[in-house]
């Protein structure tokens, strides 16, 4: 979509209907927001790098080279090699796939469960709201990483379970955002009208209430991806997530830290990768919030 540059295009867009102008307005604000631009740009570069890891990486991330253990950065190995002689740049590139996938899947889990619980609580109210609210209170009572660790304890160590664990720990954020939005949206006249003509509850929830909660949940989801990636990497760092020989950033850092004094690059590169991904999503998420919901602007 091109930018409405002249007054006439703006006027045309305005007559074309509210949704279109709003979309255009949001896109225009996004193009002008430094956080969205820098964060989004960085994120695109990172996503492209991980998607094309098989092209960009000169080595197989699992290939061991006994001739070149903990080698310093060189022309052949720009980031050096790890204690088993595996090329660090290749491992960092492939590791991006794991971290980004973990971010996406765990946030998807939080989103789906949180939106469902939030809509049920907000729409039905009463005892449903009470029961769901208490359940969310219990989840929120666990300090940060501990709920994810407890989930890992129940399900067993591993990358898939780490995604589920991080996903569960994010449910309250989405439940609360959704519930609040549904509570105010269901006061709208069109909801009452839909109910008056006998629309089934499923239709009211799906067609009339769901569109209202998309924007706030997109913001929460974007801001959550960074935390989710850090949580996932922390679990792997603690030995509770991805297992060797997976090229997972948190795990690579844990393996590299023993050699901190002799081969600092082993823990530096994967840490920097996590930092850049998380900073990019945070910048983008903050920007998106400013653009989509100027009321919340800090």
């Amino acid at each position: 979509m091109s930018a409405p540059t002249t007054a006439t295009t703006v006027a045309h867009a305005a007559t074309a209907g509210r949704t279109r102008t709003r979309t255009q307005l949001v896109l225009r604000r996004m193009r002008r927001h430094p956080g969205v631009l820098i964060g989004g740009g960085l994120l695109l570069v990172i996503i492209a790098a991980t998607l094309f890891a098989h092209v960009l990486a000169a080595y197989d991330p699992l290939d061991i080279d006994p001739e070149n253990l903990s080698g310093p950065p060189s022309a052949k190995h720009p980031l050096g090699t790890d204690s088993l002689g595996r090329d660090l740049l290749s491992r960092v590139l492939y590791g991006g796939r794991i971290s980004l996938l973990l971010g996406l899947i765990s946030v998807a889990i939080s989103l789906v469960a949180g939106v469902a619980l939030g809509m049920a609580a907000g729409y039905f109210g009463g005892e449903t709201d009470e029961v769901i609210g208490r359940f969310i209170d219990v989840l929120l009572a666990f300090p940060g990483l501990l709920l994810a660790m407890l989930t890992i304890f129940a399900l067993g160590v591993g990358l898939t379970n780490a995604m589920i664990a991080v996903g569960i720990s994010g449910i309250p954020l989405f439940q609360r955002a959704t519930r609040a939005e549904v509570l105010s949206a269901k006061q709208n006249l069109y909801v009452e009208a839909a109910r008056a003509i006998g629309a089934p509850e499923g239709i009211i929830l799906w067609r009339h209430l769901l569109p209202n909660i998309i924007a706030p949940n997109v913001i929460v989801a974007t801001l959550r991806v960074g935390t989710a990636i850090i949580f996932g990497a922390s679990l792997s760092f603690l030995g509770l997530g991805a297992q060797a020989p997976a090229p997972e950033w948190g795990l690579m850092l844990a393996q590299g830290r023993t050699f901190l004094n002799v081969a600092w690059w082993l823990s530096f590169a994967p840490g920097l990768a996590i930092f850049l991904v998380v900073m990019a999503t945070n910048l983008f998420g903050d920007g998106l919030r400013d653009v989509l919901d100027p009321r919340l602007r800090a």
Binding site: G226, I230, A233, S234, F237, G250, L253, A254, R257, L260, N261, W264, S267, F268, G271, L272, I274, F275, V278, M279, N282, L283
Partner: peptide, 22 residues
Amino acid sequence: SLIGVSMPIFWSGLLLIFLFSL
């Protein structure tokens, strides 16, 4: 503050160890 929220603490901890201890 953006750096603070984006840095995984196991990494910032190692960086501090590297600089101030090693």
